[in-house]
Design a protein around this nucleic acid. Structure first.
Length: 271
DNA sequence: AAAAGGACCTGGTGGC
DNA sequence: TGCCACCAGGTCCTTT
């Protein structure tokens, strides 16, 4: 499910409910996610105050007095704020019962997500420490991308989805950004000109910012923490539109498989 | 070092 | 209606 805009939407939605809130209790129904939920998590959280929330790439971080909860939504995860009367749905793996009577519930059918704890600064955690740049930060420039792409033969789509280089871009927004930039998804990353890199950076930032503004993309089951879907799916130009006409030139959009991911593009517009 | 492919897991869809 | 193959928003790990 969630790429950067969906995680950011979740963060913004949660913040008013969670910051400076005390966790009264923790219910764990399923420990087996991508990695097991730590056995001692309950003791780390119970009666502790959530000081603040942040995001790094697709990771959500809840900062407590000592240590942080690291949450990743995987492919199908979401976090909901619920009143205690709501009935349990399948795959509700963890609840934080808050002092304000609300429940923060983690739901993840495919269990590709993760809930981990770190006593240290969370950015030093092995999963976060080697992450690439934030695409909406000022250090993500055309020159940065050009230098990282130089001499590399991987398809440009794979490169921009590589979290060691840039975080947050998944299959939807990679396809959309390449369409906006008129760049073919399979061309070797190292063959882009500096100008094309600048265009691509601009397109990535544009598509992510627009998607955040729309509350993310709901394909199937993404909702924010209040249960509202995102509306960016109405603005998708290529993702999920193989066989349909290109909104720019009218040519039939093509699909191919790249690194086991479906990839839609316009062979008329994207060179 | 870089690139490619497999693995993890559930649920929905389309074909026969 | 049932069964099966295949697909889905991620990303780490192993192999080449």
């Amino acid at each position: 499910m969630p790429e950067l805009p969906e995680v950011e939407t979740t963060l913004r939605c949660l913040r008013p409910y969670l910051s400076t809130t005390i966790i009264r209790d923790v219910t764990i129904r399923q420990y087996q996610l991508r990695w097991p939920i730590p056995n001692d998590l309950k003791s780390k959280l119970q009666n502790k105050c959530i000081r603040s929330l942040s995001r790094r790439g697709k990771y959500l971080l809840l900062h407590l007095e000592e240590g942080s909860l690291i949450i990743h939504l995987g492919m199908s995860g979401c976090l909901r704020i619920l009143s205690d009367s709501e009935r349990l749905v399948p795959h509700a793996h963890l609840d934080l019962i808050l002092a304000n009577q609300l429940i923060l519930r983690y739901i993840d059918p495919r269990r590709f997500g993760a809930i981990l704890w770190t006593d240290e600064g969370p950015l030093e955690h092995p999963l976060l420490k080697n992450l690439g740049v934030e695409p909406l930060s000022e250090i993500f420039t055309g020159d940065f991308l050009w230098r990282r792409a130089k001499n590399r033969l991987v398809p440009i789509k794979s490169l921009i989805m590589n979290a060691k280089i840039i975080v947050g871009i998944g299959n939807i927004y990679a396809a959309e950004a390449l369409f906006l930039a008129r760049i073919h998804p399979t061309i070797p990353a190292g063959s882009l000109s500096p100008e094309q890199c600048q265009t691509l950076v601009d397109s990535i930032q544009q598509v992510l910012q627009q998607a955040i503004k729309q509350g993310g993309t709901t394909l199937k089951d993404f909702v924010d923490s209040e249960g509202k879907p995102g509306y960016f799916s109405q603005q998708l130009n290529v993702y999920g539109r193989a066989g349909l006409p290109c909104v720019r030139c009218g040519a039939e959009l093509k699909a191919l498989r790249l690194a086991q991911r479906s990839t839609v593009f316009c062979s008329g517009c994207q060179k």
